[in-house]
Structure formats: C-alpha cells, structure tokens
Amino acid sequence: MAILELNGVTKTFGGLTAVGDVSFKVDEGSVVGLIGPNGAGKTTVFNLITGNYVPNAGSILFEGRELSGMATNKIVSSGIARTFQTIRLFQKMSVVENVLAGCHCRMKAGIFSAMLRTPSQRREELEALQLAMRELSFVGLAHQAENLAANLSYGNQRLLEIARALATGPKLLILDEPAGGMNPQETDQLVALIGRLKERGITVLLIEHDMSLVMRACEELVVLEYGIKIAEGKPDAVKADPRVIEAYLGTD
C-alpha cells in the first residue's frame, strides 16, 4: 500500500520548471531513493512534500490525505519528518536540545502549565528527555548529548538531524543527501542505520548522489532529470536504463 503518492506535481520558479508533472508512489515500509543529476529538482520535491513550497499543480497524498496547502508543522505532526541537504541544526544548542525540538509536536504543555510546573508538565518533560536520549542512542550519539551541535563532525551532524527527525515520531522519513560529507566508513554505518529504520517500520524516502549507497540501501528508485521523471523501478533495472546512464554521464 502506498503511504505517499504524488500525482502530476508541478512547481515552477518564474520561467523555470523545477518539477514538471512528476508522479510516483512510496509503499509503506519500503526504502525509496530519489536520484538524478544536480539541479534535477529532487530537493524541490522534498520541499513540496513538507509544505515548504506549494505545488502549482498536482496532488500529494499522505495516507490518502491531501498535503498541499497544509502548514509544514502540521505535516510533520501528521507523520512526515525530514532532514536538510544543507545541515540545519541549532548550532549553538546542545545535541540533546536539538533532539528535543523534534519532541515538541508530541508534547502538550503550554504557558500556564509551565509556569505552575504541574505534575503532568514535569512528567512530560522527563519523558521527552528520555525519548531524546533513546533517539540519540539509536543513531549512536548518546555520548555526545551535552556537546554543542556545532562541535560535532559533519557526519555526526547528519546523524543528529536524523535523531531530531525521529523524535517527531514519523511514519515517513525523508532524507536529503544523508551521506553528503560522510567518509566511506560513516556511509557504511548510515546504510546499516537505514536498515534499522526499516526494521522499526519507518518508511524512508531519500535523495542521494552516491550511487553505491543508493544501490545498497534502496528497494525502489525514482530518477529525475530537469524536473521530469525519466525512470523508476528496481535499482538494477534503473542502473541499466540507457536514459539514466545518459543523464548521469551527460553531467558528470
């Protein structure tokens, strides 16, 4: 069953069609890769899914519900979490505080319960901290909890973004170039992490340049070029597709 479904989604910036009439489905529990040369419109597709951009045409359905027009924070609390291609952590805050940002949408306490420090508010705070630490330990960063985000290595910052996204309790996790800036060893660990996400029942949609990672981690691929979908299917079939080969050889 499809958890996410894009139908004829188009997004233009002035005269430029960044995404043109793109349709694809992401099955629940699967790991899908969105690939294509630089400037193909991959990040724009992510921004459309998370409500950062509103499509000019087409529909985006998550669990059968229309997303376009919904505020980003509502989309996140309905179960889609993301990471950013250019890392967007709260650099001056500690690692655990970054993850607590993700916990926010699963918490309730407002101004008054915080001022009165009610028992339920205190319990909620403690549970959020516990959840944050669990997600940090899931990505292997629990020992860095009190460090400042800015002091983490590039690869660890990518993992921290994943932990923050996981703290929102997503059903679908979308990762924009998660291996960007990682060394081969870190990339191997990332592939293992994606496997463990799948075991947790989280559907993963990821953008990646590194073809070897894509081939190892993904079950399905969707290929974009100049905003148009040029291929989709199993990694091996996609890899052998002449249009895909041409798209990649043409730009690299």
Partner: peptide, 14 residues
Amino acid sequence: EDAVAAEGSGINTD
C-alpha cells in the same frame, strides 16, 4: 535560531 528548521521539526512557528 532557525525558523525553517523549527517549523520542519514540527513547531508551529507562527
């Protein structure tokens, strides 16, 4: 610190 990241983490920034 970063309104886009906050909104993307599920915080209703408005």
